[in-house]
Amino acid sequence: MDKKAYMVANPLTPNNPVEIDPKLCNGCNTCVEVCRTDVLVPNPEKGKPPIVLYPDECWFGGCCAGHCPVPGAIKMVLPLNQRICWKDKQTGEYFRIGMKNPPPPNTKPPVG
């Protein structure tokens, strides 16, 4: 199997705080403008999704996802060492944020 490899720096930790769906993102950069630490910067190519330049500085406030005008285009992802578990009171079944085959989403909105 021939596969090219590159001399690159190690991935930063965390390295995936924000997931942008390139098919949905319209490149409006609203997320860039609400991020307090400039984790996101505009793509040099206009209209393309922003670049997650400083993932290691993410505060995990979720303002980018909260202000995105396109539903589902941007997702704040808690890093692996920040994922907690829960348990069904009746069945005793265990769950975890990030698990394979998660239960269906709970669609009840918050108050307000």
Binding site: F60, G61, G62, C63, A65, G66, M76, L78, I84, C85, W86, K87, D88, K89, Q90, F95, I97, G98, M99, P102, P103, P104, P105, N106, T107, K108, P110
Partner: peptide, 21 residues
């Protein structure tokens, strides 16, 4: 709002049935 409520409920957490660890 986003980091906990949205993230947890989208992952299936339901406070009516589930106990958060």
């Amino acid at each position: 709002l986003i980091p906990i409520y949205r993230t947890y409920t989208q992952a299936g957490f339901d406070p009516d049935r589930h106990m958060l660890q």
